[in-house]
Amino acid sequence: MKEIAPVTLELHGVRLEPLAPHHAEGLRAAATDGELWTLRVTSVPEPHEVDGYIFKAYEMRGSRLAFAVVDAATDTVIGTTSYHDIVPAIGRLEIGYTWYAKSRQRTHVNTTCKLLLLTHAFETLGAALVGLRTDNFNHASQAAIERLGAKKDGVLRHHAVRRDGTVRDTVMYSIAAGEWPEIKAQLLYRLARHGRS
């Protein structure tokens, strides 16, 4: 797998650009849209934590490449997503740290972001496998990952601490390179049905 370098990706009015300090105000607004930090099963920062959230993502470079999700028409930050747990030696990476402003959920945004990230991972970087993970109680996220066509690998029990101090089980999924053409076709079909061809 090629080395992962910062890149900007754009499709259907959604732009992914490397997350940077100048995105902080927009990320605060996106988190406030729905008070997403109050959701028990996500790791969305509170508005006063956003600068630290961006700094931590920057500190993790090498094993993580974080993106701001931007509405290209208005240059409005509407969320964030990342490549993470990058292991070039075996061609593996994961997509996660993903959240969007409540007003952008259940729109074409997530499908478009996943199409951009998966296309870049498999077709440019040469990934052998892309993983995704979520909280065992985040049923909406599990359903979204399963709609992508990812296969459920299993559950890591007692795996990570939640914001409220409880310990979550983590549900692991993956997409192998050989499965990508069919999954890509399905993502393109879904976007076309929503007028995003």
Rank of each mutant, 00 (worst) to 15 (best):
F122R: 05
V70E: 05
E182R: 12
T76Q: 13
E123W: 08
E182P: 03
Y173F: 15
A192C: 11
E146I: 06
I90P: 12
G178H: 11
L156D: 05
A127Y: 02
I145N: 00
V161K: 14
H120R: 08
T119I: 07
T80K: 12
I90V: 14
I145L: 06
I175Q: 03
L118W: 05
E94M: 06
L93M: 15
R190C: 07
T119H: 14
V155C: 06
A101P: 15
A150D: 12
H194E: 14
R168A: 13
G178M: 09
K152S: 07
S174M: 07
K114R: 08
H158S: 14
I78W: 00
I145M: 06
V130R: 10
L118S: 10
L156M: 14
L125D: 01
A73D: 15
D135F: 01
I183T: 02
C113P: 03
R190F: 08
D153V: 05
G96S: 10
A128E: 15
T166C: 09
V167Q: 13
V167P: 02
R196T: 00
L125S: 07
V77N: 01
V155N: 05
T76W: 09
F122W: 11
L93E: 02
V130M: 08
L129Y: 13
L125M: 14
K151E: 13
A68W: 00
N136W: 10
G96N: 04
N138S: 06
A144D: 03
R92G: 06
